[in-house]
Design a binder for these strands. Structure first.
Lengths: 233, 233
DNA sequence: TCGCATCATGACCCGTCGGTCACCTTTTGA
DNA sequence: TCAAAAGGTGACCGACGGGTCATGATGCGA
């Protein structure tokens, strides 16, 4: 009455599924309310369990739930990154970067509230707390950076982008991505001078990252010469 | 026994000074602990007042203190922006942008914890709360964007950067600035492939914003031609 | 010196929420 | 069919912190 390895026992499978349901509920609540204002009561209610049951699955309580979410978030992000660049491996870097922005833009956009919450907690936990969760946060972030740095480094080797630190560049790309996403959030009601579709946003970011905004009519010491940019719409 | 206008009465002056002390203390505590984990008890203690006294100066309690801090933060930021660009009004845009990054980098860096806290609260309050503080946050952010958009628009008129939305560009510049600052925070312990001084950071950001990282060896439809970047150290 | 007004104070009140545990239901295996 | 194990539950507890207010101190004008 047991399948020891491979496919888990019904028990194990159901346990896993329940855990996942709880995590999904917690993600929603944390995203809506922020970590501190989210109550385990509400998480439990949304997952359709009693509060006590949460502790059967996450003995570490609220914080363990947070860490599990962080891990899951980075799982998704990393797999999105590698999938995107693998699929575009053979085309030129500009094109694959654009499609990367397009794919990830949607990813971040629909998780923007959660992302901000995680960011805040990463910071809060990052200093003045146990070193254990602190280190955990660092490792997770590192995973995403590393995943993105790989295709960047390859592009550098192919001479498609100039050589610099792939990890630093990876960081700046992620920063620009979620900066754009924040802007999109904030100006949803008000301002309109903003690329509205994911694809025009992706093109804007690609141009910004690869070409900058300079007209390059000034010669500066080591930057010999011109090349003008198209004026965007 | 009253100086009705101009210089305020001793009373008024002292009241103002006390308020400022309380704000300074609250800034410290909010930055260290985050808004939720900061206690008014600790704010009061650090300002060397009793907790009750806070309510004489901020009848709105914790939230009123938060809003006052947000306003003060943006006062500082805006005046820094205009000061920096006024002082560099006559030199070319690349140079003044670099000095802008250098000045503001320090500003953000020494307030990074506070900034993250404000960011989180802006988000939390930004949705699902009273519309009143929500609007307040929006207005404050708008002030900074507008202050920065002015010199950007001028540079566009002078043809030093390509035409696009000054406000969008202002946003992206601020985003890159504090993204860099976050990176600096995070990799303080660990990674080393990072511009360490404010001035090398400023140059990195200027190059990224104005020139991008592309080698521009590919011709894409509307971007005719080359111009290579110096390889940073 | 006296009375009044202003102001500082921290003990206290009270709502909230993370975490616990005694109890109940369901499943299992004989 | 039944007992034992496993699992689910929510009432309850205790800590915590925002906000209040009775009390006392201080200053000021008469």
């Amino acid at each position: 009455m047991e399948q020891p390895s491979e496919s888990l026992s019904r028990r194990e499978r159901e346990r896993k599924a329940r855990r996942a349901e709880m995590l999904a509920a917690a993600q929603e609540v944390f995203a809506e309310k922020g970590y501190n204002n989210a109550t385990l009561e509400e998480v439990a209610a949304r997952a359709e369990f009693g509060k006590g049951t949460l502790y059967n699955y996450f003995p570490g309580g609220k914080q363990e739930i947070l860490l599990a979410i962080v891990e899951h978030f980075h799982d998704e992000l990393c797999s999105l990154i590698t999938r995107t660049f693998d699929a575009n491996g053979s085309v030129d870097f500009r094109t694959s970067l654009t499609s990367f922005f397009e794919d990830t833009f949607a990813f971040f956009l629909e998780r923007s509230e959660l992302f901000l919450t995680l960011l805040q907690e990463a910071h809060r936990i990052g200093l003045s707390d146990d070193p254990e969760p602190r280190q955990f946060f660092g490792e997770q972030r590192e995973r995403a950076i590393r995943a993105l740095a790989i295709p960047l480094e390859e592009a550098m080797h192919r001479g498609e982008i100039r050589r610099s630190s792939p990890r630093l560049l990876a960081h700046m790309i992620l920063v620009n991505l979620n900066g754009a996403q924040m802007k999109a959030c904030m100006s949803r009601d008000t301002a309109t001078d903003f690329p509205s579709s994911a694809s025009s946003m992706a093109q804007f970011l690609t141009a910004l990252m690869l070409d900058g905004v300079g007209h390059r009519t000034h010669d500066t010491p080591s930057r010999p010469s011109p090349g003008r940019m198209a004026v965007s719409s």
